[in-house]
Design a protein around this nucleic acid. Structure first.
Length: 401
DNA sequence: TCTGGGGTCCTAGGACCC
DNA sequence: TCTGGGGTCCTAGGACCC
């Protein structure tokens, strides 16, 4: 049976949401109407563009580029700090609005949703519902969206990326040759900056070229991904809208430090703070992990990683930090380090935990300590407590030094 | 004052077992 | 008595997305 799918994409999400928030809180200036961007703190080397207003876009400013280069393109540009609390709030509002139309809503990212309307049309046309949603979001929530209307997720997503902002586009099968095929192949979902030059060398420059290319040659060169790419170019996608909550498969935190680090003690300090945050989140999710990995990035942007599988599951800060510390010590070779990261994988539910022979009184004690620390963080905010006790003194990871 | 941070998925190669 | 083949698990790294 043919499916009826919408893809709802918030226009310039971070910037629009901050604009709406500011207006709601009494500010007169709508930052969507000036050259403005959302970005990090340059002094701490977190300086890239996360979102831009349409006027900023007109200066050629691109998401992901350094702030200094954005300023070069537009010296009067206004830069605002990111505020994830606000983003989450508006993201939830959008999600709740969409639930009025179908319970089959997939939160694809903080600013994108898929909606499976197949069973919920009630005799209406999909495109009419799309226009209604678009209007309601604008009137009730104060920001605009693009909506893609199609018979599968891939085509709905491609459609929502056509002309912006505040538009509804269809991309039905018969429209593929006219609307999608003329686009450069780099516009196709999943064709990134590494794949694009490889395709270009094969004389595949447009999505049409890819759609008409020899499938077996693509599979030979790109493996499984070659098949997927070819199918996408031909508008084929059988993926379901995943509307149920999915537990995360990994949790991690990383940070770019404000100055390159040249000694292991400093690395360990930052690593501890990151570990505390990651394990806190892991416990909040009611999960444990069996794989721990650490990542280092050098000042020359070389990445190294090390991981280890444990033969028991844990979410204890002390346990995980012990392993992470060993890993980072094995990894560190003296190069100046600009980024440190930790990640935990192979997650499983806390309740499913096997009582292992490693479980002893110390483990119980650690679990209790973690719980106390977590509850203080919940009550007074995350920054209020850092653990000392039997671990190295933790310092704020954002400390400027 | 070069290049964020949080994820998912895939692959290649080595170790080890039978 | 000079070299097999299949399978699984683990690690490192890379690609993509937002």
């Amino acid at each position: 049976m043919e499916r009826e799918i919408l893809h709802v994409d918030v226009n310039n999400a971070f910037l629009s949401w901050l604009a709406v928030y500011k207006l709601k809180n009494g500010e007169d200036l709508d930052i969507r109407t000036i050259p403005a961007i959302i970005g990090g703190d340059e002094k701490q080397r977190h300086g890239v563009v996360l979102a831009k207003s349409n006027l900023a876009k007109q200066f050629g400013i691109k998401t992901g580029e350094p702030l200094y280069s954005a300023r070069k393109k537009c010296p009067t540009i206004k830069i605002y700090e990111s505020n994830f609390k606000v983003y989450r709030q508006y993201s939830n509002k959008l999600y709740e609005l969409l639930l009025n139309y179908s319970y089959k809503v997939e939160r694809f990212s903080i600013d994108e949703c898929f909606v499976d309307m197949t069973e919920f049309l009630n005799g209406r046309k999909l495109i009419d519902i799309a226009y209604e949603i678009s209007k309601r979001v604008k009137n009730e929530l104060g920001f605009t969206v693009n909506i893609g209307v199609a018979n599968n997720k891939l085509l709905a997503k491609m459609a929502s990326d056509f002309q912006k902002p505040d538009r509804v586009h269809t991309l039905y099968e018969k429209e593929i040759p006219r609307k999608m095929w003329p686009l450069p192949v780099s516009e196709l979902f999943m064709v990134g900056k590494r794949t694009f030059p490889k395709l270009y060398n094969m004389n595949i420059k447009t999505i049409k070229d890819l759609a008409l290319a020899d499938q077996t040659i693509l599979e030979k060169k790109f493996g499984k991904f070659g098949k997927t790419m070819w199918e996408y170019a031909n508008g084929i996608d059988n993926a379901e809208v995943v509307y149920t909550y999915q537990k995360p498969k990994c949790v991690g935190n990383s940070t770019t430090v404000s100055q390159d680090i040249k000694n292991i003690e400093k690395i360990e300090e930052v690593l501890l703070a990151l570990t505390e945050h990651t394990t806190y989140r892991l416990r909040k999710l009611g999960l444990q992990c069996t794989v721990i990995s650490v990542q280092l990035r050098t000042s020359e942007f070389k990445n190294y990683s090390h991981q280890r599988k444990l033969d028991f599951a844990t979410n204890s800060t002390k346990e995980i930090y012990k392993v992470a510390k060993q890993l980072v010590n094995q990894l560190y070779n003296g190069e100046p380090i600009r980024l440190i990261g930790i990640r935990v994988d192979n997650l499983c539910d806390e309740e499913e935990k096997q009582i292992s022979i490693f479980e002893n009184n110390d483990t119980k004690k650690q679990e209790k300590l973690d719980k106390v620390v977590d509850s203080i963080k919940d009550k007074y905010g995350y920054e209020t407590i850092t653990r000392a006790a039997d671990m190295k003194q933790s310092k704020n990871i954002n400390r400027k030094d």
